[in-house]
Design a protein around this nucleic acid. Sequence first.
DNA 1: AATCTAATTCGATAATTATCGAATTAGATT
DNA 2: AATCTAATTCGATAATTATCGAATTAGATT
Lengths: 186, 186
Amino acid sequence: MSDELVSFYKALADANRLKIVGLLAGRAYSVEELAALLKLKPSTVSHHLAKLTQVGLVSARTESYYNVYRLEEKALEEKTRHLLSREDFTTAIEDVDLDTYDRKVITDYSRKDGSLKTIPAQRKKLEAVLRHVVKAFEPGKRYSEKQVNKILSGFHEDTASLRRELVGYGLMKREGGGGDYWRVES
Amino acid sequence: MSDELVSFYKALADANRLKIVGLLAGRAYSVEELAALLKLKPSTVSHHLAKLTQVGLVSARTESYYNVYRLEEKALEEKTRHLLSREDFTTAIEDVDLDTYDRKVITDYSRKDGSLKTIPAQRKKLEAVLRHVVKAFEPGKRYSEKQVNKILSGFHEDTASLRRELVGYGLMKREGGGGDYWRVES
DNA sequence: AATCTAATTCGATAATTATCGAATTAGATT
DNA sequence: AATCTAATTCGATAATTATCGAATTAGATT
């Protein structure tokens, strides 16, 4: 997931850290100076600066006793362009979006009790529904045709069609002529 | 203070809220759908959507039973331009920056013990230092010239110059010819 | 080498907030 | 009118994090 993106926004999601960035936009400051300006203890300011450093917004240069922090203009420039762009947001859903389409189709075709209103005619929609239906079978387990029909009847009365399509799309397999069915691992 | 700015960043400083925005960038979703996709309870998603609505990033439209949320493209566009701009950051320091210049000058001219390295020659810097020095006097209290010199000697050996400038810039006043001194309220 | 000074790290605490379940609300649908 | 459904609100709890003081560290300065 875009952990980096979340960290970036979190770094700016604090009034005092925004003030630090605002101050550093004017000139560089030491930790002590910032603490005085913000009415915070140096240890607290250190904590904030660490978060800002982590996302590359500021950097430190040691100068005699002092640690002088300055704004990283380039990083800021770059982020400004990137940020809030569609790209960034789509990376945020990398681990979610996978079966969005399936879900949409399934909810469209399902009643509250989980049964199907109809069996979709369009190939893409049919596939989505079949991927959903096949989850009712345990992987590895073998089922007789009677058992298969029993389970499928929970989805639609036309169990024969469902069974045929499941096999046709390779989601279930059948042993020889009249043998058992089992769910194919995806 | 730019409370609005903080709220905006806070609204995006959460992985699940970023995912919601990412999803809504694709199409509109109901609360239930989002809850299913994010594996959260509807009440939690409601909470997140409330935060996003507050900053104007999303909006809801009621549709039969459902509350369908969509991304506010215009708001997003506008924010993209504004955000991370210098303007925004300077608003963040509205309530801080007031005496930044004074502080800078004072630290530049002060030793650790609080005494002055030199008395500034430039008018702006001198004013800043004098505003600092005058704080050593209690408002309302009256001081003899001897007492004044005693206090000023903590800043610089040339107490006469300091005394003269303080009066000259109107920060302290003197009663008649050889009377007492007092600090002028600002 | 010994000392000073600012910064950082660490541990503890207070404040904030994400999450959930239960209760309530608002809007269709029957 | 009664019922149903999804959404919201409310209260409680767990998780996160801002803040501080004390201890430690790192780098000059004496």
